[in-house]
Design a protein around this nucleic acid. Structure first.
Length: 283
DNA sequence: ACCAGCTCCTGCTTGC
DNA sequence: TGCAAGCAGGAGCTGG
């Protein structure tokens, strides 16, 4: 599922029920997701106050009063669903137990947060807060696409000399952190760049123009609550809505929507992943 | 160093 | 309707 906008949507959904609240209890129902959980994870979460929830790329970081940070990755199909009774309001977004409820966190305010991940590509780890960003999963990540260090000069330098297709380069989390297949396809379409073009062979003005396009696509997707194709749900269980705004992703054989283009959206495979683009207006 | 391909796992969609 | 193949939003690892 989740690329940056989906993860940010989940983070925003968890913040009001977790931030500043104590973790009353935690249950681990299965010993591992992609990797084994850290030792005694449930016990180490118990009694901690959640100082705040941050996001780095596609990771959610929950800073705890113990001085540790819970790192959460949703993989392809992970969900964080809130249920329970809070402030007199009853949330029933995940009351039925599912076979893939791997971790359940019970907050002192009555909220219950369930980590559900059918494909088990997700991960959790618990590390000291002051070195959380040095975690092996985070240490090699490139800049945040919505941050100031992601700019035209940076991107040109990062892609200089690279012969891999621009599509593959933008999926590389070391180049820019948080993009996935959907938003790379959409951004390249908006920028009019052919996904097969070699990353190091794109003229500066076109690369420069790609930066604000990426920011816009991500910001609009966050605003829409992300994209729900199969698995993504907001923390309250609601769907995201950005999938209705896709111009190319999953639109194979449909007419290109670019004004006056007249082309047809194609699906190709690049390094084993689907790429959707319009050969007419993406050059 | 760079890059394409494979792999982990489960479930939904597609085509025969 | 039934069944199997194909495909899925991530990302680490391997080997050329």
């Amino acid at each position: 599922m989740p690329e940056l906008p989906e993860v940010e949507t989940v983070r925003r959904g968890l913040e009001p029920v977790m931030a500043g609240q104590v973790i009353a209890d935690a249950e681990v129902r299965r010993p591992d997701l992609r990797w084994p959980f850290p030792p005694n994870m449930a016990k180490r979460l118990q009694g901690q106050i959640v100082r705040g929830l941050r996001r780095r790329s596609k990771y959610i970081l929950a800073d705890l009063s113990s001085g540790e940070t819970l790192i959460i990755h949703l993989g392809m199909s992970g969900r964080m669903l809130v249920s329970g009774q809070m402030r007199g309001e009853f949330f029933r977004n995940h009351d039925a137990k599912s076979a893939h409820d791997h971790v359940v966190i019970h907050m002192g305010n009555g909220a219950r947060i369930t980590f559900n991940d059918a494909r088990r590509f997700g991960a959790m780890d618990l590390v000291p807060t002051d070195t959380a960003e040095d975690h092996w999963l985070l240490s090699k990540l490139g800049p945040e696409p919505l941050g100031n260090s992601f700019n035209a000069a940076y991107l040109e330098n990062a892609l200089n000399g690279r012969r891999t297709p621009i599509k593959s380069a933008l999926l590389d989390q070391r180049v820019v952190a948080g993009l996935g297949n959907i938003y790379v396809c959409e951004a390249l379409h908006r920028a009019g760049i052919n996904p097969k073009r070699h990353a190091g062979r794109i003229a500066s003005p076109r690369l420069g123009a790609l930066v604000p396009v990426i920011r816009d696509v991500l910001a609009e997707a966050i605003e829409a609550g992300g994209s729900s194709l199969r698995d993504h749900r907001q923390a309250d269980g609601e769907l995201g809505y950005f999938q209705h705004r896709f111009l190319v992703y999953d639109q194979a054989n449909k007419p290109c929507q670019t004004l006056g283009c007249g082309g047809t959206v194609r699906r190709i495979v690049q390094s084993g992943r689907s790429t959707f683009y319009c050969p007419t207006c993406q050059r």
